[in-house]
Simulated scan of single mutants.
Amino acid sequence: MLPGIGEYVKHVNMEKKVGATCQSFKIVSKTVKDPLLEAKLALFQTVARELEGFLTRFQSDAPLGPLLYESLCAVIKNTMTRFVKSDILQGTSLVT
């Protein structure tokens, strides 16, 4: 999808269309130029996929409050392993 968006932005900028002046288009145009955009979107997608299970589980009328702590700790731990070195995490009480 990103290559198509890039082509659209390029076409609109070359044609000097009226839509190029709206704020939304300016944001998209600036974002498409980011060389790390694909990596950022991939990271967002994996984190969202991880959170989706947690959010789906707790959207219930069942009394899930007692399970919240363990589930939230697991989500935080899994997310932190993407950003924090494992030897640092081993020194915390969050990771056992």
Rank of each mutant, 00 (worst) to 15 (best):
K33A: 11
T21K: 15
L55P: 01
T21E: 09
E52R: 10
R49A: 15
V9Q: 03
G4N: 06
L2Y: 08
T92A: 10
L2Q: 07
P63G: 04
K17V: 14
F83Q: 07
M14S: 12
S29V: 00
H11K: 07
V47G: 00
K26R: 02
L37P: 05
E50P: 02
K85G: 07
S24E: 14
I76G: 01
V75H: 02
G6T: 14
V9P: 00
L2K: 02
K77F: 03
E70P: 02
T31A: 12
G53R: 03
Q90K: 11
R82E: 08
I5M: 05
R82A: 09
A42N: 05
F58E: 11
L2M: 06
V9N: 02
L68P: 05
M14G: 08
F54D: 11
I76A: 08
A48E: 10
F25E: 02
F25Q: 04
G53V: 02
E52M: 08
L51Q: 10
F54T: 07
Q90V: 08
Q59C: 13
V75Y: 00
R57W: 05
C22D: 14
Q90F: 08
A20P: 04
A39F: 02
A20N: 06
I76H: 01
H11R: 15
Q90I: 08
C22P: 00
Y8G: 03
R82M: 13
G19R: 14
L37F: 02
M80N: 01
S29M: 00
K30P: 06
Y69W: 07
E50C: 07
F58R: 05
G4D: 14
I76Q: 02
I27N: 10
K16L: 13
V75Q: 03
A42K: 05
E52W: 09
L2P: 05
K10C: 06
V84Q: 06
E70A: 11
P35T: 06
E52I: 13
S71P: 01
A20Q: 09
F44K: 12
L89E: 02
S24L: 08
G91F: 04
A74H: 13
I88H: 11
E50S: 11
I27R: 13
L37G: 03
P35F: 00
A20T: 09
L94N: 13
A62Y: 07
L51G: 05
Q45A: 14
Q23V: 10
G53Y: 03
S24I: 06
I27S: 04
M1A: 09
V84Y: 10
P3A: 08
V32Y: 03
